Lab assay of single mutants.
Amino acid sequence: TTFEIRVGDLRITLHNADEEEIRWAEEALRRGIHADEILRTLEERRR
């Protein structure tokens, strides 16, 4: 599944994310964390 998060002009697309990952990514985007860093962190958490 694919889920797109939008916060203002910012956007990130997550693939195969669970609800916790989606909530975490949305909050991180709101705090101004760059999408590349969010994706990198999620990848590390999945390992």
Rank of each mutant, 00 (worst) to 15 (best):
A17E: 02
R23F: 09
L10D: 08
E21M: 12
A25M: 03
L10E: 14
E26W: 07
R30A: 07
R6A: 15
L14Q: 00
G8A: 03
I5V: 13
H34R: 09
E26H: 05
T13M: 03
A25V: 13
R31V: 10
A35H: 06
D18F: 13
I5P: 15
D18H: 10
L14I: 14
T1C: 15
L39C: 11
E43Q: 07
N16D: 08
T2Y: 15
I12A: 01
R30P: 01
G32L: 06
E20S: 12
E19F: 10
E37W: 06
E21Y: 04
E4R: 00
H34S: 14
R6V: 15
R23S: 08
G32Y: 03
R40D: 10
R47P: 08
L42I: 14
R23Y: 07
R46I: 07
A25F: 05
R47Q: 12
E19M: 13
R46K: 12
V7K: 00
E27T: 09
A17D: 02
L10Q: 14
T13K: 03
L29A: 06
G32S: 05
T2S: 15
L10Y: 10
I12L: 13
I38C: 00
R45S: 11
A25Y: 02
E19S: 12
I22H: 03
E4Y: 01
T41N: 08
I38H: 00
R30V: 11
H15L: 04
E4C: 07
I33V: 12
T1W: 04
F3E: 15
A28F: 06
E4P: 15
I12N: 01
L29F: 04
L10G: 03
E43H: 08
L39W: 07
E26K: 10
R31Y: 08
R11H: 14
T13H: 05
D9N: 07
E19R: 07
G8M: 01
T41M: 11
L14R: 00
L42A: 02
R46Y: 05
R11G: 06
D9Q: 04
V7E: 04
H34I: 11
D18P: 03
E19N: 13
A35N: 11
D9Y: 02
R11I: 15
E4N: 00
E27C: 14
H15T: 12
L42G: 01
D18V: 12
A28T: 05
I22Q: 04
T13C: 09
E20K: 12
T2G: 15
R11L: 14
E26V: 12
H34P: 14
R46A: 07
L39T: 06
R45L: 10
R11N: 09
L29P: 00
E26P: 00
R40K: 12
I5T: 04
R6C: 15
E43K: 06
R23I: 10
T1V: 10
A28V: 05
R6M: 15
H15F: 11
R45I: 10
T1F: 14
N16E: 06
R6D: 15
N16V: 06
E27F: 03
A25S: 04
L14H: 00
E21G: 07
L42Y: 02
R45E: 06
E26L: 11
E37C: 12
E19P: 10
R11K: 14
R31F: 09
E27A: 11
G32H: 06
W24Q: 03
D9V: 03
R6I: 15
H15E: 05
E4V: 03
L10K: 14
A25N: 00
R47T: 13
I33R: 07
E44D: 12
I38N: 00
D9I: 12
L39E: 05
A25P: 00
G8S: 01
I22E: 03
R46L: 06
I38Q: 00
D36A: 08
L14S: 01
I5F: 01
A35C: 03
G32A: 04
N16I: 04
E27N: 09
I33N: 05
E4F: 01
W24N: 02
A28K: 06
R46M: 06
E27K: 08
A17P: 14
H34V: 13
E44K: 07
H34G: 13
I38M: 09
D18M: 11
W24E: 03
I22R: 05
A17G: 03
A28R: 06
R11S: 14
E37I: 12
H15Y: 14
T13S: 04
A17F: 04
R23M: 11
I33E: 08
L14C: 05
R11P: 01
A28P: 00
R30W: 07
D18C: 11
A28W: 08
I22P: 00
I22V: 09
E21H: 04
A35F: 04
I33D: 09
R31H: 13
H34D: 13
R23H: 11
I33P: 01
I12R: 01
R40E: 11
H34M: 12
R46N: 07
D36L: 13
T41Q: 13
R45P: 02
E44H: 10
H15S: 06
I12Y: 06
R40T: 09
E44G: 08
I5L: 04
E27W: 07
R11M: 14
A35L: 05
E44Y: 06
W24A: 04
W24L: 07
I12V: 14
T1A: 09
E27Y: 04
E27S: 10
E37A: 10
E20N: 11
I22C: 08
W24G: 01
L29W: 03
T2A: 15
E37V: 12
R11E: 10
L14W: 02
V7R: 00
R47F: 09
E20Q: 11
R11Y: 14
I12W: 03
D18K: 09
T13A: 02
N16R: 04
G8R: 01
R11D: 04
A28Y: 05
E4T: 02
E20I: 11
H15V: 11
E4L: 01
I38V: 10
A25E: 00
R6H: 14
L14N: 00
E26Q: 07
H34K: 11
D9A: 05
T1I: 14
I5N: 01
E27R: 08
R11T: 15
F3V: 15
F3D: 15
I33Q: 07
T2M: 14
E4Q: 01
L29E: 01
R47L: 12
R6K: 14
L29Y: 03
T2C: 15
R6F: 15
I5E: 15
T1K: 14
F3G: 15
L39P: 02
R30K: 10
A35W: 02
A25T: 10
G32T: 02
G8K: 02
A25W: 05
R40M: 08
D18L: 11
A17H: 03
T13E: 05
T1N: 15
L10V: 14
G8P: 00
H15C: 06
D9T: 05
L39S: 03
A28H: 08
L39Q: 05
E27G: 09
G8E: 04
T2R: 13
R46Q: 08
E44I: 08
E43T: 08
A17N: 02
I22D: 00
L39F: 14
E43M: 12
I33A: 07
D9E: 10
A25Q: 00
E43I: 07
T13Y: 02
D9G: 04
I33M: 12
R11W: 09
A28Q: 10
E26T: 14
R23D: 05
I22K: 05
W24K: 02
I38R: 00
R46E: 05
R31I: 12
G32R: 04
L10M: 14
D9R: 02
R30I: 11
A17R: 03
E20G: 12
E43P: 03
I12D: 01
D18R: 09
R47V: 12
R6E: 15
R23T: 09
L29S: 02
A17S: 05
L39Y: 14
V7G: 01
R40C: 13
E44S: 09
D9W: 01
E37D: 13
V7C: 09
H34A: 12
V7W: 12
L42M: 08
L39I: 07
E19A: 12
I5K: 02
I22N: 01
E21T: 11
T2K: 11
R47Y: 07
L39A: 03
G8T: 00
R30H: 08
E44R: 07
E21D: 13
W24I: 08
N16K: 04
R40L: 11
A17Q: 02
F3W: 03
D18Q: 09
R23A: 13
I5R: 00
R40P: 03
I12Q: 01
R47E: 11
R45D: 05
R30N: 07
L42S: 02
I12E: 01
E26N: 03
R45T: 09
T2H: 15
R47I: 11
R47A: 10
G32C: 13
D36T: 10
H15D: 05
L42V: 13
R46P: 04
F3T: 15
E20V: 12
T41K: 11
D36F: 10
R30T: 10
A35M: 02
A35G: 13
T41E: 12
E19Q: 13
E44N: 07
E43R: 05
E26Y: 11
I33F: 09
A25H: 00
I22Y: 06
R47S: 13
I22M: 06
I5C: 14
D18G: 09
R47N: 13
R23Q: 13
E27P: 00
E19D: 13
I22G: 04
G8W: 00
E44L: 09
R11Q: 12
R30D: 04
I33S: 07
E26M: 08
W24M: 08
T1D: 15
I33H: 07
L42W: 02
E20H: 13
H15Q: 05
L14Y: 01
R23G: 07
A35I: 05
I5A: 02
E37G: 05
A35E: 08
E21V: 06
T1P: 15
A17L: 06
H15N: 06
R30S: 08
T41R: 14
A28N: 07
E27M: 06
R30F: 07
T1Y: 08
E20A: 09
T41F: 11
R45W: 10
